[in-house]
Design a protein around this nucleic acid. Structure first.
Lengths: 242, 242
DNA sequence: AAGTGGTCTAGACCACGTC
DNA sequence: ACGTGGTCTAGACCACTTT
C-alpha cells in the first residue's frame, strides 16, 4: 500500500484525494453525510485512523464539517453556519445582522485581458458579468462587480438572481453544482467614482475599500473573479492573523 | 489521568497547556528546540501520541515549528521564516523584497480612553508611543503609530529602535522577552491627512488603507495596539480566505 | 442499545538530518 | 548508526446523538 521514496505522498493524503474525487463526482451532495470513517476505511482498505487523518485535513480546509455523534457532512453554503463565510465586513458596533443582496444587472460579455487571466479562460471566451448591491439593514454598503465563466454559468439571469433569497454562493451551489472552497483577496484603498458614489449615497471621491477576489473550486480551479467597493464609514474589514 | 465529564478537556489539551506554561516561564527560548516528543511523554506521563497531538495544535497556531529529523523549535520573530509574518502588504509585481523600518519618534504618554481599552490597562497608565515609517526599496509606503504598555516596555527609546536592524517584533522578543502570537486587524479606507500625505509623498486626501492591529501574547493578553496607514498605489493587502 | 466521531495507547516502520 | 519527527495500524474506551 506504500509507495517508494521519490515524490512521496503519505497514504492519508492519497485517501484524501480519493475522497475529494468522490466529492467532485457528486457522490454525496452538499449538506449530506459522507460514509462513516469505518465504511471509508473498508472501502479504501486502510485503517480507520488513516481515513481519520484524511478527513481531519479536509475539515481544516472547510470542505467537510464534523458533527460528533452524527457523522461528517459535505460543507454547504446553504448551511447557516457557513453562509457569507467569505464576507469579512463587520459593523462598527457588534451588530451581526446579515446583509441583503440586491442584484442590479446581469449581462453576457467576452473575456477581456484581465478577466481571462483571472478566470483561466481564453481571451474572448463568453463570460457573464453581474452587478449588485449589498445592504446592511437597508443601507447600501458594498457595490460588487462579478465576472463568471459563461460555460459554467449558462442560464444565469437577472430574474434568477432576483428570485433567490439566499447568498450568491448558495445559488451557485444549488443551481450550478459549483462549490466554492477557498478565495484570495487583494485589498486597496481607492476613491469613489461618480456612479459608485451615487449607489452608496456618499460624496464623489470618498475613500473606499477595493476588494478583488478570486474564488476557487476543487483542484484550485478559479471560477469567479469579483471586485467589491466597500464603504467603511460604519463597517470594517476584520482579519485574524495567526 | 482522565477527568470526568462536565467541562471536559481532553488530555492532549491539558498537555498543551502545560507546554505553553513552560514556554511562558521561559524554559526554552525562541529559536531553541523543545524536548523530543518521547521526553515530553515521559515527563508528563502520557503516550507519545498524546504529546504529538498537543504539539500539532501548537504548530497549527504558529507557537512552535516542526522540523523533520531535527526537532520542534520555539517560534521566533528572528527566524527569517516568520519575519514580518503579520505584514500582508505585497508589491503589485511579485517582488518579495523585505521592507525597512525607519523609526521617527518615541515618547512616553498616559493611556487615553481608547488605548486603555485596546491594551487592557487602566486609563492614565503609562504607555509608550512610537511613530515610524516602512519603506519598500527606499520608497515610504506605510506610516505606523504604535501604542505599547509602558510597564512591559521600560527602556524602549528612539535610540534603541534606530540601532536595531531587524523587525520590531524581533526587537520586542529579544529585548523584552515578549512573544507575539496572534493579532487581529480592522481595515478601513480613509483619506490622508496633511502630515501623513507629506510623509508618504502623495497628495492630501489620497485614499489610504487604515489598518488597526491589536497583537496578543500568551493567554490572549493584548500587548500592542497600532494603526498603520498604507499607501496602496503600488502595493496591496493580500488575504487568503478558507 | 447502537452508531458516530473523539481520545488514548502501544508498537512498528519510514523519511530526514546529523554524526 | 542514531535520533528526530512523520506515518500507519489495531484496539480500547469516551462523548454525543438517535432509535
Amino acid at each position: 500500500m506504500r509507495q517508494e521514496s521519490p515524490t512521496f505522498s503519505p497514504l492519508y493524503r492519497q485517501i484524501k484525494n480519493l475522497i475529494i474525487q468522490a466529492l467532485e463526482a457528486g457522490e454525496w451532495r452538499p449538506g449530506q453525510a459522507i460514509p462513516s470513517e469505518q465504511e471509508l476505511a473498508l472501502r479504501f482498505n486502510v485503517s480507520q485512523g488513516t481515513v481519520r487523518k484524511a478527513i481531519d485535513e479536509m475539515a481544516g480546509e472547510n470542505m467537510v464539517v464534523r458533527k460528533q455523534g452524527k457523522g461528517t457532512f459535505v460543507a454547504s453554503h446553504n448551511d447557516p453556519r457557513s453562509l457569507f463565510r467569505f464576507l469579512r465586513l463587520v459593523p462598527n458596533d457588534g451588530d451581526l445582522s446579515h446583509p441583503d443582496s440586491v442584484p442590479l444587472e446581469c449581462w453576457k460579455a467576452k473575456a477581456g485581458h484581465e478577466a481571462s487571466r483571472m478566470l483561466g479562460v481564453d481571451p474572448g471566451a463568453p463570460i457573464i458579468i453581474v452587478r449588485r448591491l449589498l445592504k446592511f439593514s437597508g443601507v447600501p454598503v458594498v457595490v460588487d462587480e462579478i465576472y463568471l465563466p459563461g460555460e459554467i454559468f449558462q442560464g444565469l439571469s437577472l430574474e434568477l438572481l432576483q428570485s433567490w433569497s439566499g447568498s450568491l454562493y448558495s445559488l451557485f451551489e444549488s443551481r450550478f453544482g459549483l462549490r466554492m472552497i477557498r478565495a484570495q483577496e487583494r485589498i486597496r484603498a481607492v476613491a469613489a467614482d461618480r456612479t459608485t458614489a451615487e449607489m452608496l449615497r456618499v460624496g464623489e471621491s470618498t475613500p473606499l475599500l477595493s476588494v478583488e477576489r478570486v474564488t476557487y473550486t476543487y483542484g484550485d480551479k478559479p471560477v469567479e473573479w469579483r471586485r467589491g467597493l466597500y464603504l467603511t464609514a460604519n463597517h470594517f474589514y476584520l482579519n485574524e492573523l495567526s
